[in-house]
Design a binder for these strands. Structure first.
Lengths: 264, 264
DNA sequence: AAGGATGTGAAAACCCTGTGAACCGCGTTC
DNA sequence: GAACGCGGTTCACAGGGTTTTCACATCCTT
């Protein structure tokens, strides 16, 4: 499972329009979620934004700068704080860093460097902060627990192998979205899928079988012909199941055909 | 692994005598344990020093600078790396930070600022693991006492060596959670696991053997094929003999039976 | 109906873990 | 100073679980 950088949520607190515009461009290009604030937001608002880091120019806060910095660092020990100011002195930088800032950059500065420093700060924070562990993902009767590398149905382990589990996780995390085979392969195997490789199909088969054994009344993985697969827990209606002429795949009841097997 | 909170252990890799002398004075005054190296030490030597951070001037390494930086950051993800160089370009700083450096300072610089930045980096790394040390951890018949670097079963010492104890501690602290081999190695040995290293397996074997000798009725360490190990005390049910009764592939047999290769 | 795509079952290839023992480096003992 | 005990590392092999590969059946779109 190779997560790329994992997108970063960032807030920029500054009023220097030139700097902001250039930086925002780069942030957009890199796909970071960001927001620009023209004044110091209350700490609880920052909390609500669920940020990874903030870039702060203390000059927009005036004399309140130090106390604001202190408050933010104290209240949000998990937040990365990068100060970016013009004309700072050594004493100021030392004071800021001791107060809890993670880095202090001098303007003018290159947006690429700002981003690299934010990355460095967030990287180190993530490494040490054992992730809050997003609670177990639940869907239908299924429970996917990433801390166990395993899925459970009514408390029982589904007995998935590592690959099977990662496949399920990739699909389940995209709940409701169709993912193409190439993407699935890329995300689970970590490299590009060779032409004609059937691994994904085979693993979907194994997954379906194991899930079905413990959760017979539900269907979780749906096929989208010519595209890929989609995860979506759906209770099987007794009446329209088990169509005799298609003993193998009742997961695609004819009634829903246009919905199930449709290449958009 | 767990360093005390106060003092910082630092290595300075530089040959700039003026800079070194001034910095060393401050470090002494602050009571930091430090060492000056005039060339890049092999990674395993750095490991042995149990450092919190290094301050590195890549110019002493010549063209090897980048690869050295890469190697150090890759092998010692827990080490704080502060690069301190003269005449660096934005591109160089970005590259260094992306390679894994935590900060990049330009010379000339004030020693106080260097120290403040080192503190900031180390603080980031520590902030999360302030495990105020809970009392002795008890699991099944086992009692893990970190204050004695030893585990006990019904009052008797299990006779663990240091590595064995640290392995047990890492696993036991994560009670119930599967930990991957790479993570285990990283946390116990302190640096990245080389591909193909079997140390973890060997130590798990030793641990299991010693635990079993004094607590025959319990199993503590469970294997998760293709992933790693999980600590969880489980009483052995007399009725269920260790008969590897691998019946005719029930596909999802693992309800709660196999004890050695147990994947929940 | 043709042709490409997916479902299936099983064999073959590959990789992981358990295990015992040799091998090293170090500090202690004789 | 050499032998010895200890802890840690590296090897090699066995056994078996996992992944990949195949061949064929079935299904969908054109």
């Amino acid at each position: 499972m190779a997560f790329s950088t994992g997108t970063i949520r960032l807030a920029v607190i500054d009023t220097d329009t030139g700097f902001i515009r250039v930086l925002a461009n780069r942030l957009d290009a890199a796909g970071w979620e960001h927001r620009v604030l023209s004044s110091g937001a209350p700490v609880d608002e920052l909390v609500a934004m669920k940020l990874n880091a903030i870039v702060l120019d203390p000059s927009v806060l005036g004399p309140e700068g130090w106390s604001y910095l202190d408050r933010v660092c104290g209240m949000l020990p998990g937040l990365g704080v990068i100060v970016c100011s013009a004309n700072s002195t050594v004493a100021q930088r030392v004071r800021g860093l001791r107060l809890g800032a993670d880095d202090w950059i001098n303007k003018p500065c290159h947006p690429e460097e700002v981003m690299a420093r934010v990355e460095a700060v967030v990287r180190r924070r993530r490494r040490s902060q054992p992730q809050p562990e997003s609670g177990p993902l639940v869907a239908g009767e299924l429970e996917v627990r990433s801390d166990q590398f395993q899925a459970f149905i009514s408390g029982q382990s589904v007995g998935l192998t590592r690959r099977e589990f990662e496949l399920l996780q990739v699909l389940a995390e995209a709940r409701g979205t169709v993912i193409e085979r190439e993407d699935i392969y890329q995300r689970v195997w970590g490299y590009a899928m060779a032409h004609g490789d059937r691994s994904v199909d085979v693993f979907v088969r194994k997954l379906r079988r194991k899930l079905e054994r413990l959760s017979a009344g539900w269907r979780y993985i749906h096929t989208h012909f010519g595209v890929g697969y989609r995860f979506e827990p759906e209770a099987v209606v007794p009446g329209e199941a088990e169509i005799p002429d298609r003993a193998i795949e009742p997961a695609v009841p004819m009634v829903e055909e246009s919905e199930e097997i449709h290449r958009t």
